[in-house]
């Protein structure tokens, strides 16, 4: 059991119940992810999915970039690849989805909130599959993307953490998620890093 940041007085998820984490970030996201992803332990037993909005047409160097900064394995999945533990980045120009047989799905459907990949697409499909075992984290961004997805996670019984808009480089996206999803925790990046380390740590059994 985690102890929540005191000021929020909320119940945090029971660690063994967490089956997966999904994270969405937009403007200012590289810095924010750099503050939180390295805290995922090397031997984490769960997958951590990440969507970050990048300018269109830019080929992704995210895997290289974060592989050097993270302890956990960092990858970009292929279509129908079985989901395993570690950090998985959505590829540019495709929506990333979670299928009910625990494989990755892809689509080139229209952008959502001007974005492909869209945070909403990942969060909503993951909420469908992991239900109350899912933790969703919405970080900095100047977009509405992620709010509906965070809502879907809450509706499915999952847990939502949002970066405190006051502390985010771009406040629009976390503020939208706070408004739409009534997250269990709204806090700073360092606190989110600690929470992520705890939910992603190896299970003692």
């Amino acid at each position: 059991m985690l102890s929540a940041p005191k000021s929020y007085g909320v119940v945090v998820p029971r660690v063994p119940a967490v089956k997966a984490v999904c994270i969405g970030a937009s403007a200012g996201g590289i810095e924010a992810l750099t503050a939180v992803l390295p805290s995922v332990p090397a031997d984490t037993p769960i997958p951590v999915f990440v969507v970050i909005h990048l300018p269109p047409g830019r080929s992704s160097r995210l895997v290289e970039l974060f592989a050097s900064r993270c302890q956990a394995r960092v990858r970009e999945p292929l279509d129908k690849e079985p989901i395993g533990p570690g950090i998985w980045f959505a590829a540019p120009d495709y929506h990333l989805l979670v299928e009910s047989d625990f494989t990755f799905g892809f689509s080139v459907d229209e952008p959502v909130h001007f974005s492909r990949p869209a945070i909403d697409m990942l969060f909503t499909s993951a909420a469908d599959v992991y239900g109350e075992g899912l933790v969703g984290i919405v970080l900095t961004g100047a977009s509405q993307d992620g709010a509906d997805g965070a809502r879907a996670i809450r509706d499915a019984g999952g847990f939502v953490i949002v970066q405190d808009p006051m502390t985010a480089l771009a406040s629009t996206m976390p503020a939208a998620a706070v408004g739409r999803a009534t997250p269990q925790i709204v806090t700073t990046l360092p606190e989110i890093a600690l929470l992520l380390r705890d939910v992603a740590r190896a299970r003692e059994s």
């Binding site: 989805l97 009910s100 689509s107 459907d109 469908d128």
Partner: peptide
């Protein structure tokens, strides 16, 4: 068909 994107559509 893959259910996740079909559901969305």
């Amino acid at each position: 068909y893959s259910m996740a994107s079909l559901k969305r559509r």
